[in-house]
Design a protein around this nucleic acid. Structure first.
Length: 491
RNA sequence: GGUACCUUGGCCGAGUGGUCAGGCAGCGGUCUGCAAAACCGCGUACGGCAGUUCGAAUCUGCCAGGUACCUCCA
């Protein structure tokens, strides 16, 4: 742990040195998906951002417990069916059991995350599996006098809380402003103040997902699950809480207040928020209807896409921007990322072709240091990737013979490239599927290229170019090398 | 309306008060039978206007444009 890891804390609005509360253990909580729809490009951002963090911290030697929840109850829909649980509504729509919908989209989420090489968290708790813990949480807040019951629902008393604490400290909100800008919602008259939020909500007759509680048959409030599950699995104090910037308010603000109300102190030391992915400069979101599903990205089926993009291209695209910047989607940017990543992988593979020298012109140690420095500076993956590309040039030069590296240096470089590329950035070459089919296929292409070699020896350029051009038309990139030839499938 | 943030070369995207981001695309060269790939070289970019400063794209103010949150949202 030579490098001081510095990360941006939303709470202080500044970069802080990371010091775990109980080193070497690190508690990390990230808001996971609401499983009522197919995962889209927006879901990939936090997943990959915090996957990078998880991998990096683990690599630094920390023992990380990573909790990422599945939200499968509670969140209210805000359209015609106001007040109905999202999951319940979807279930009625598709004539499925709510938990069937939950299971289906959870499976989909896992499948997409797996494709993106996002490591599974240590614990993935479901909100629906922690109703008892959430009810207990509500009870505690009621006992502390910071919540009140009204018509079978329980609301957090924001104004009272604000008398002794600062509601709005995370998001920079001022209570008076909220009073004027809070929108009128259903059930508003049950509340003392419009900005009070539900801890427990009484279920309407049409509401399918419902549980018994001391107050009513209903369901837990929208922000409660993270308070309850974070506390359960990471303790009353833990290190990092992450999520998308759009969750900062009200979700995380409320969560923070709930924890202070129930526990008497804040739970989270560092709050991290990733920025949004935009499309034509506008946030990509479910409610805006401009999102692209991950499966559509992978197969190119969305009308905005001119071609499919592999999971690794998506991952690389996201890592090429800093997590706190917005990232604008475009085909040009994706294609550029795809080509760049290709070059990176190619150099990584070509490491095997380097012949070591007695001297070294490549500064392996400096390279390592620069990469670690970039990560240590608030997870600056774009800078790290820039250093990786600098190394690509040197690797290619070494193959050309215009740069040199010692055997020891080469071994270390191979280790570092594996570490940075595969283990930390989580970029792995797309599976080529070594099968009998593929072997036969490769054999046939090689045979053609052998014939081309013979034609070349006879200076029969017509035949040699014919083979190359026809293969090219079929999607094979053929290139001549000192030893003979090389090829790859470019589609 | 309130609050916060953003505006970098053809595109994407880092960063800093005073030599370099990086990728993609483009141009020139080396190599090649020709290509491809690779390597070498090339772009004097930082929204506008003022101010602070020896010096600002980087700090301050104003203006313009954009975005986010304030409502479920990654």
């Amino acid at each position: 742990m030579a490098n001081k890891f510095v990360l941006y804390n939303t709470l202080s609005r500044s970069k802080e040195v990371f010091e775990p509360i109980f080193s070497p253990n690190v508690g990390l909580y990230v808001c996971g998906p609401t499983v009522y729809g197919d995962p889209h490009l927006g879901h990939a951002r936090p997943a990959i951002t915090f996957d990078l963090l998880f991998r990096y911290l683990t690599n630094l030697g920390y023992k990380v417990r990573y909790v990422r929840n599945i939200t499968d109850v509670g969140h209210l829909e805000n359209d015609a069916d106001e007040g109905e649980d999202k999951i319940a509504q979807k279930a009625r729509l598709e004539k499925l059991e709510p938990m069937e919908v939950v299971q289906y989209y959870t499976n989909r989420y896992h499948k997409m995350m797996d494709a993106l090489n996002v490591l599974p968290p240590s614990i993935e708790p479901h909100a629906s599996g922690h109703i008892i813990e959430q009810i207990d949480f509500v009870k505690t807040i009621l006992e502390k006098g910071l919540a009140y019951e009204s018509e079978g629902s329980v609301y957090f008393d924001v104004e009272k809380y604000n008398q002794s604490h600062h509601y709005g400290k995370l998001s920079g909100r001022v209570l008076d402003d909220l009073l004027n800008s809070t929108r009128k919602l259903d059930g508003q008259d049950e509340k003392r103040n419009p900005f009070d939020f539900a801890l427990w909500k009484k279920a309407s007759p049409s509401h399918i997902m419902r549980w018994n509680s001391p107050w009513s048959v209903g369901f837990p409030g929208w922000h409660l699950e993270c308070s309850a599950m974070g506390t359960k699995y990471l303790g009353e104090r833990f290190d990092i809480h992450g999520g998308g910037m759009d969750l900062q308010f009200p979700h995380h603000e409320c969560e923070l207040a709930q924890n202070v109300a129930a526990l008497g102190h804040e739970s989270v030391k560092y709050w991290m928020h990733n920025n949004m992915i935009t499309i034509n400069g506008q946030k990509m979101g479910k409610s805006l209807g401009n999102f692209i599903n991950l499966s559509q990205m992978f197969d190119g089926s969305h009308p905005l896409l001119v071609q499919p993009y592999s999971p690794m291209t998506i991952r690389f695209f996201i890592l090429q921007a800093h997590y706190r910047s917005t990232l604008d989607f475009s085909n040009d940017a994706l294609i550029a990322a795809e080509k760049g990543l290709d070059r990176l992988f190619e150099a990584h593979r070509n490491l095997a072709k380097i012949v070591p020298s007695a001297q070294s012109s490549i500064d392996v140690e400096g390279f390592s240091q620069k990469c670690y420095d970039a990560l240590a500076d608030d997870l600056n993956s774009p800078i790290m990737i820039a250093h990786l590309f600098d190394m690509v040039r040197q690797i290619n030069s070494a193959i050309d013979g215009s740069a040199t590296i010692t055997a020891v240096g080469l071994t270390e470089l191979k280790r570092l490239m594996n570490l940075f590329l595969n283990d930390i950035l989580g970029l792995k070459p797309e599976a080529t599927g070594r099968s009998k089919n593929a072997d036969a296929f490769a054999g046939a292409v090689n045979l053609l290229l052998e014939i081309r070699q013979e034609a070349k020896l006879k200076k029969d350029w017509a035949t040699s170019d014919l083979i190359r051009d026809k293969l090219k038309a079929l999607g094979f990139d053929v290139k001549d090398t000192k030893e003979g030839y090389d090829w790859k499938l470019s589609i």
